[in-house]
Structure formats: C-alpha cells, structure tokens
C-alpha cells in the first residue's frame, strides 16, 4: 500500500483525511510535536550508550565506492 505522507520541515505526518473515520487526531501544537522529537532523540542516544561503548560511524563515500 503506497501512501503519501506530509513532509514538514523536520518530520513527516499522516494525511489528516486518514484520521477522520475510526480514530481522530487530538489537539496538538508544534511545540508538542517538537517535544516528542526531542524526547525521542534523547532516548535513542541513551539506548546506544547503554548497549555499547560507542557506535561506529557509517561507511564513507570512499569505502562505498572502492
């Protein structure tokens, strides 16, 4: 099922029409969305710290092209 999503400056959102039948969106402002994103990043950073000393960086362009 290929779906279109709404692209905001720093996150994606569902097309609101999909939230009109069974379940409805609640009242939310951008600050609430930003808080969620901040909490998420903090949590993911902490998760990585918990499971290993550090996470190695991704492959460089050179590594990918060689």
């Amino acid at each position: 099922m290929a779906e279109k999503v709404i692209k905001k400056s720093d996150h994606y959102e569902v097309e609101p029409w999909r939230m009109t039948g069974y379940i409805h969106q609640q009242v939310m402002n951008d600050a609430a969305i930003q808080k969620i994103m901040q909490d998420k990043m903090m949590y993911l950073t902490w998760m990585h710290k918990q499971e290993a000393g550090r996470c190695l960086p991704g492959y460089t362009k050179e590594e990918l092209e060689s």
Binding site: H48, E51, A52, G53, R54, C55, L56, G58, Y59
Partner: peptide, 9 residues
C-alpha cells in the same frame, strides 16, 4: 562484557 563498539548497517 559490555561491547566496546557497535555498528549497525
């Protein structure tokens, strides 16, 4: 031992 490093790809 807690892993020194991890690498997901």
């Amino acid at each position: 031992p807690k892993p020194e490093v991890e690498f997901p790809s």
